[in-house]
Amino acid sequence: MFEITISIISGALICGGLVFFLGAAVGLVRFPDFYTRMHSAGKGDTLSTIMILLGIALYQFHDLFREAHSLEEFFEHFKIELLVAIKVTAISVLIMLTSPTSTHALMEAGYDDGMEPFTCEDEDADENQNGKESAGQ
């Protein structure tokens, strides 16, 4: 019962993480401008990584009640699994700290380098061009 609950919760977390990663990848490919692409990369990437890693950290405990036949064995398994779960949570905290920082640094580098953001005039120009092409055919 405990095992099935833990498996379902961690599976849900990992699947959610994969869905967010899909969204981030699609956004990275399809957005029109450098700054918008950075939005999708920074946010989607960090969130999906944290969800997947928390799911794996929770999954460590899934066979806690199955193997132990005595109280000392139970504590041994619990200690080992807790150690790995803490390490995985530490990785996720680290990525949560550092990935938005590097996104911020890259965006500042892009701004200082002179990249123009995609404004409404560009979008209207695009639409006009597409409209003229479809009208001409």
């Binding site: 680290l94 700290l97 911020h104």
Partner: peptide, 14 residues
């Protein structure tokens, strides 16, 4: 940059 400096102050000891 403030953000980069403070984050690196946290990450470097780790």
């Amino acid at each position: 940059d403030l953000i980069v400096t403070q984050t690196c102050n946290l990450v470097i000891p780790v």
